[in-house]
Simulated assay, not measured.
Amino acid sequence: MKYDDIIDLPHHQSVRHPHLSMAQRSAQFASFATLKGFEEEIAETARVTDDRIVLDEDEIQQIDEILQYVQCNIGDGLQITVTYFVPDKYKSGGSYVQKTGTVKRIDTIEQVITFSDSSQITISDIVGIQI
Rank of each mutant, 00 (worst) to 15 (best):
I131G: 01
D76Y: 05
V70Y: 03
Y84L: 02
Y3I: 05
I106H: 05
K91Q: 07
I131T: 08
E40K: 11
S118F: 04
V15R: 11
H11L: 13
F29R: 09
S95G: 12
I113P: 09
V127C: 06
E110S: 12
N73M: 12
G101P: 02
V112D: 00
L67C: 14
K36S: 14
Q71N: 11
G94M: 09
L20E: 01
P87S: 06
I53M: 05
I53T: 13
T34Y: 09
V54A: 14
E65M: 11
V112R: 05
V82S: 07
K2S: 14
L9E: 11
Y90E: 12
G75H: 04
I6M: 10
T34M: 13
Y84Q: 00
E40W: 07
K91E: 06
S31G: 15
F38S: 11
V82Y: 00
H12P: 03
R105P: 03
A27K: 07
V54P: 01
P10F: 01
I109C: 02
E110F: 03
Q79W: 05
Q98V: 05
Q120I: 13
R47V: 04
L35S: 11
S116L: 09
Y90C: 04
I106Y: 00
Q130A: 13
T114M: 03
V112I: 15
Q120H: 03
I121M: 01
T34E: 15
E110H: 13
Q13A: 07
P18F: 04
E59P: 02
T49W: 03
D4A: 10
V54Y: 07
L35E: 14
M22N: 14
I123H: 01
G77W: 13
D5Y: 10
F38A: 12
T83N: 06
V70E: 02
E41F: 06
L9G: 00
A30R: 09
V86A: 02
D51G: 13
D107V: 09
E59R: 12
T100S: 13
I121T: 08
P10K: 08
K104I: 08
I66K: 08
Q61M: 12
V48I: 15
P10S: 06
T122G: 07
I113S: 06
I53N: 01
F38I: 13
E65Y: 15
S21E: 05
K2V: 09
D125W: 02
K2F: 10
I123E: 00
K89P: 00
E39R: 07
I113D: 04
D58N: 15
D117E: 01
D117H: 03
I113A: 12
S95T: 11
Y84P: 00
Q111W: 03
T45Q: 09
D125E: 13
K89Q: 08
K91T: 08
G101N: 01
T34C: 11
I74M: 10
Q62C: 03
P87H: 06
I53K: 10
E65F: 10
Q130F: 01
D50T: 06
Q98Y: 02
A33I: 14
D8R: 12
L35Y: 07
L78I: 10
R52K: 09
K36F: 09
V103K: 02
Q13V: 15
G37Y: 07
H11E: 05
S118M: 06
I42Y: 10
K36G: 07
V70A: 15
S119Q: 03
R25D: 04
I60P: 02
S92W: 05
T102E: 04
A23Q: 15
V48Q: 08
D76N: 08
E59D: 13
V48D: 00
Y90T: 13
V97I: 15
H11I: 15
T83V: 14
I7L: 12
